[in-house]
Design a protein around this nucleic acid. Structure first.
Lengths: 239, 239
DNA sequence: AAAATAGTGTCTTTCAGACATTATAAT
DNA sequence: ATTATAATGTCTGAAAGACACTATTTT
């Protein structure tokens, strides 16, 4: 009750620990990946876990998340969004831990990313091939992060955060397919994305095996202006 | 970093306090109301605040929210949803407080609700007539709760939580209008809600001044089955 | 010329929105 | 009959979906 808060004496109450966990997504070879770290000690020794750590008393939650992100990947200035706060009693065997989970999207060309595939204890996993069982309740956190990413994709410009500065429309389509887990019609995709006015055409092209592809840039100025609704098939919402 | 968590010694870290705040919505006279409590002590003495309190070490976050809710209103078995976690450094002048905010929807016929309009320190406010300035960052929390309620209304069956067991379709429409803050077309509303298959017709009617109105029941069994998308006008999403 | 990839055009269906009409009660 | 409220019907325009077609490159 609010009354008890007003007469609050800090020494009276036991306090839980508070951590921030960051589910870090990126695209590697056009495929959606997540960064996981392997635990070295009890509990869940050897298990893969979502990177995270305790908050400092002088930093806000987002600041904590940014710090974790920088420590794990060396990347700054990325899209960060609070996902959910997990606070079941037994979720950490050591003590009562409340964990505020964040989602981070790293653009594909921010590949100054430290954590590499080679490293034994920090690694990018494709979402299609995750480890069987993660530490703590991290399976649950990760599953929720992925489902949130899917649904937000439909009514935000979030997918662009994952792309490099320049990209082709078919690459963008590919990301949507990756995350939604379903094929999209090429023509309809072209139509809709162009009508949106979110893309700026460049004079650049990229060569391939067939016809070269035109490169586009995301118009960040227009992003906030008008919410972009990318709703391909209503029934997808039911998943 | 995860490594530091593994070697964690509880005495090393200072811990913040964790509270749960519950934004409680209900319908009174067909209008959306929120429950607020008036603070008796420093800080923010005399200001209205969202009810909440410290979590206990042996209860999960939702359990804390349910307890607060029961303490404040005496109501059980309601819809509860986690809203957001607020953790700015200076949000509580007494100490570092992380607050996990929840939304509660109380059905209109659960009016065994204790807190009454008469009471001086606990009161229902219509969302159209809230106090000017709330305690702490509660303005922000409340604004966010209302906006979340609005947007969730469009793709969930959430509005039904606010209604009594039996209701007319026009009452339902009225709730949508209340929460969305805009008029809806009667015919289109009838069409859409009936197509959804979410309502079960009863043989009951209610008398009024004109033609009596048919009463319906919400089909909770179908609620999960198929996500209900109630999207009236796309441009509303931009708010 | 064939294969490969990029990009456009068009027809159909679906559905939201607007609005007119009918139904059933009280006065 | 008039008023009041409830409920249904219908027309239209916009946009999603399906799919055929054209364009530009390499081999």
């Amino acid at each position: 009750m609010e009354e008890s808060a007003a007469t609050y004496d800090p020494t009276h109450y036991q306090r839980p620990s508070v951590t921030v966990d960051v589910v870090i997504f990126t695209l590697i070879n056009q495929e959606l990946h997540v960064l996981l770290v392997q635990r070295r000690h009890w509990p869940f020794e050897g298990y893969w876990a979502i990177p995270g750590g305790f908050i400092n008393m002088d930093e806000s939650l987002v600041e904590s998340a940014r710090r974790e992100l920088a420590e794990e990947t060396g990347v700054r200035d990325v899209y960060l969004e609070q996902l959910y706060t997990f606070g079941e009693v037994g979720r950490d065997p050591r003590s009562r831990v409340i964990s505020v989970a964040y989602i981070a999207l790293i653009s594909a060309d921010a590949q100054k990313i430290r954590a590499s595939d080679e490293s034994t204890d920090v690694r990018w996993f494709p979402v299609s091939g995750l480890p069987e069982q993660l530490a703590f309740d991290h399976d649950q956190i990760l599953a929720y992060a992925i489902s949130r990413l899917r649904s937000k994709l439909e009514y935000t410009t979030l997918a662009f955060q994952l792309l490099p500065e320049l990209f082709s429309i078919l690459e963008l389509k590919h990301i949507y397919e990756q995350i939604l887990g379903e094929e999209l019609d090429k023509g309809n995709f072209y139509r809709k994305i162009k009508e949106s006015g979110l893309l700026e055409e460049t004079q650049l092209t990229r060569e391939g095996r067939g016809r070269p592809t035109r490169l586009w840039r995301f118009r960040r100025d227009r992003a906030g202006e008008k919410q972009f609704v990318f709703r391909w098939r209503e029934d997808r919402l039911s998943r």
